[in-house]
C-alpha cells in the first residue's frame, strides 16, 4: 500500500468515526481506535496517540461555540480539571507499562458501557440549592434556555471529584475523551443540569487530553503521518454530525450505531484475549 492510499483510507475512516461519534454523542476518539486497530491493523499505541489529538481538536472546536453561548460553567470545569488532569497523567504513565491486550480488553468494555449509556433517557433536573461545600467553591451558576435564565446549584462535590479522577485515568490510558463518565460525575452525582454537564464535560476534554497527550508525544506515540488524516477526518465528520443533529434527532440511527459499536467492542475484546492485538 502506498502512503497516499493509506492516508486516504485513514481519512475516510476518520470521517466516518467523527460522524458516528458526533451522532451518538460518544465522541470521535472512542470510535477511531477500534477502527484503526481492528480493521487497519495499526498498532494500538499509534491509534491511541492519533485519537487523543483528535479529541483535543473536536472538543476545543465545539467547546468554542458553547462557551460563547454561556452554557458552559467555567468554574465547575476548572475545579474538576484538577481531578481529570491528575488522572490523565497517571493514566498515560500506566499506558506505557500496561500490556497491549489489557488495554484492548479494557477499551472494549468501556466502549460497550458508553454505547449502552448513550441510549439511556436523560432526565432533566435542576437543583435549586447548593450543598455548603459546593457553595464555598462557587460551584453554581445559570444558563440561558428558551423560557428564560435557569439558576442551578450542585452537591456531592467529593463524589464528583473522585469520579472525575477515574474519568481522567481512563482518558489518559485509552486515549478517549471519556465524556460518558464525565457526564455521570456531573449529571448523576453532582446533579448539574444535563445541558451544562455535557457542554462543561466537552470544555474539560481539551485540557484533560492535552495533559496525557504530551506524555504520549514524548514516548513516540504521536505519528504525524497517521495523525494528520485522522484529526482532519474526525473533525470534519464531527462537524457534519452536528449539522445533522441541528436538523433532526435520529433516534433509530443512534440504536443502530450503538449495536455496531458494541460488535466492534466485542471484536476488540476477542482480539485482546486471543492476543491478536
Amino acid at each position: 500500500m502506498t502512503v497516499l492510499v493509506f492516508t486516504l483510507i485513514l481519512f475516510v475512516g476518520a470521517y466516518a468515526a467523527g460522524l458516528i461519534g458526533s451522532l451518538t454523542g460518544l465522541g470521535g476518539g472512542v470510535v477511531i481506535i477500534p477502527l484503526l486497530s481492528v480493521f487497519l491493523g495499526i498498532d494500538i499505541h499509534y491509534a491511541i496517540g492519533a485519537a487523543l489529538v483528535s479529541v483535543i481538536a473536536t472538543s476545543s472546536g465545539s467547546a468554542a461555540a458553547y462557551v460563547r453561548e454561556g452554557i458552559t460553567n467555567m468554574r465547575i470545569g476548572m475545579f474538576l480539571e484538577i481531578a481529570t488532569t491528575i488522572g490523565a497523567v497517571v493514566g498515560a504513565l500506566v499506558a506505557t507499562i500496561a500490556p497491549t491486550h489489557f488495554i484492548a480488553v479494557l477499551f472494549g468494555c468501556i466502549l460497550i458501557f458508553s454505547a449502552m449509556n448513550s441510549l439511556r433517557k436523560k432526565a432533566v433536573h435542576v437543583l435549586p440549592e447548593s450543598s455548603p461545600l459546593a457553595k464555598k467553591l462557587k460551584l453554581y451558576g445559570s444558563y440561558p434556555t428558551a423560557s428564560g435564565v435557569v439558576h442551578y446549584g450542585t452537591k456531592n462535590v467529593a463524589g464528583g471529584f473522585v469520579m472525575m479522577i477515574v474519568a481522567g485515568v481512563l482518558s489518559g490510558l485509552l486515549g478517549i475523551g471519556s465524556g460518558a463518565l464525565k457526564v455521570i460525575a456531573m449529571d448523576n452525582i453532582m446533579r448539574i443540569p444535563f445541558k451544562v454537564s455535557t457542554t462543561t464535560s466537552n470544555f474539560m476534554m481539551g485540557v484533560t487530553a492535552t495533559a496525557s497527550a504530551v506524555v504520549y508525544l514524548q514516548r513516540g506515540y504521536v505519528q504525524p503521518g497517521i495523525c494528520m488524516p485522522v484529526v482532519i477526518g474526525v473533525l470534519l465528520g464531527a462537524l457534519t454530525g452536528s449539522r445533522i443533529l441541528i436538523r433532526s434527532s435520529p433516534e433509530k440511527l443512534k440504536v443502530f450505531f450503538a449495536i455496531v459499536i458494541t460488535l466492534l467492542a466485542l471484536q476488540m475484546i476477542y482480539n485482546g484475549i486471543t492476543g491478536k492485538i
Binding site: 500500500m1 502506498t2 502512503v3 497516499l4 492510499v5 493509506f6 492516508t7 495499526i42 498498532d43 499505541h45 499509534y46 506505557t96 514524548q218 514516548r219 513516540g220 506515540y221 505519528q223 504525524p224 503521518g225 497517521i226 495523525c227 494528520m228 488524516p229 484529526v231 482532519i232
Partner: peptide, 25 residues
Amino acid sequence: AIIGGIIYLSRHGHETVYYPKFEEQ
C-alpha cells in the same frame, strides 16, 4: 497540518507505507 500534509504526500505519497511495531521512545 493540512499544508504540511500536502507537502508530505507530494513528496512521499508514492512510497510504500511502513509503520514498524511500536517502540517506546
